[in-house]
Design a protein around this nucleic acid. Structure first.
Length: 301
DNA sequence: AATATGGACAACCGCATCGAG
DNA sequence: CCTCGATGCGGTTGTCCATAT
């Protein structure tokens, strides 16, 4: 397929897998288990490179792979997870049993991206910025960053508040399970940057910095930034029911821009009814947590 | 019926990260 | 601490197929 082969080269088959190859790969993994992808092709009698075998197994042959169209629930989860995690498809996939990162990535690129954009009426111009007051005069990249971070702040605040309220949680409250579970999962950990891998959107934003506070000054900047974002988000949501969307044109990586879309898409995106915005008034509490030696992790909550 | 076009999906590539030596 | 191989991940591309012209 166009490019030079990554792994050598001569005698290595490429392209679609045949049923015979699939069978050989499955049989080999059944006997010897996963791993050792480098040597697997030789041992399995396959003329494929190890990476190709691994990909084939993970995406199509592995037991438990769910095929078929995505449900609306899965779609909603993908949208919300993407708002939280960005293009971290593996992390998103870990929250969708039976779905692979590749499948989700393809689904996003071919369905969700397009559908969200469709609501913009075809224009790529942001007709209604969520932060019109502060954003319009800034560069597109800055605008992207601020817009994107506002969504993240909302999601993070939501998760944090729900987590902090967990003890007194009313079962009647809205869907705490999903986000709470997510927040306490590896995805939440990834999101909080516990492993020091801050890759979401490559945006070295104030909030991102604040997610890895190493000093009180960072906490302060975190607070300032989030308060700023909080205010703009509140203003936007309360005043004009924003329509937001990704600008998915061109390079997708880290290039997020809200454009207008439907109200439902916006709600789906943030899943935040107006009345639930109140928690934003409490963002200070998660941005400036009480001293706790246990909280030396790189996070802000 | 033939051809063009676009969407969907499978597969590949390059880079980042991890871990062993 | 450094190097290097193995693995994982995300972006991109190629191919197939359906639909439009």
């Amino acid at each position: 397929m166009g490019k030079a082969p990554c792994c050598d080269k001569h005698g290595v088959k490429r392209g679609s897998w045949t049923p015979e190859e699939d069978e050989a790969l499955v049989e080999h993994i059944k006997k010897h288990g996963e791993g050792s992808w480098r040597t697997l092709p030789k041992h399995a009698g396959l003329q494929r490179c190890g990476k190709s075998c691994r990909l084939r197994w993970i995406n199509y042959l592995r037991p438990g792979i769910k095929r078929g169209p995505f449900t609306s629930e899965e779609e909603t989860n993908i949208i919300q997870l993407h708002a939280l995690l960005g293009n971290r498809w593996a992390a998103i996939a870990s929250q969708l049993p039976g779905r692979t990162d590749n499948e989700i990535k393809n689904y996003w690129n071919t369905h969700l991206k397009k559908n969200l954009h469709h609501h913009s009426g075809g224009t790529k111009q942001p007709c209604l910025s969520p932060h019109a007051g502060i954003v319009k005069s800034e560069s597109p990249s800055t605008r992207h960053m601020v817009q994107w971070e506002s969504a993240r702040v909302e999601a993070e605040a939501r998760l944090s508040m729900e987590s902090s309220l967990n003890n007194s949680w009313s079962p009647a409250k809205t869907c705490p399970d999903y986000f709470l579970r997510l927040w306490n999962s590896e995805v939440g950990e990834s999101f909080r940057g516990l492993k020091g891998r801050e890759r979401v959107g490559e945006s070295h934003s104030l909030v991102s910095q604040a997610s890895t506070p190493s000093s009180s000054s960072k906490l302060e900047s975190c607070s300032d930034a989030s308060l700023h974002l909080k205010n703009t988000v509140q203003e936007q949501i309360s005043s004009c029911k924003p329509k937001l969307e990704y600008d998915t044109g061109g390079s997708d990586s880290g290039n997020y821009e809200y454009l207008d879309t439907s109200d439902s898409a916006f709600k789906q995106y943030l899943d935040m009814p107006d009345e639930d915005i109140e928690f934003l008034d409490h963002t200070d509490s998660f941005l400036n947590p009480p001293d706790d030696d246990e909280e030396e992790d790189d996070r802000c909550d």
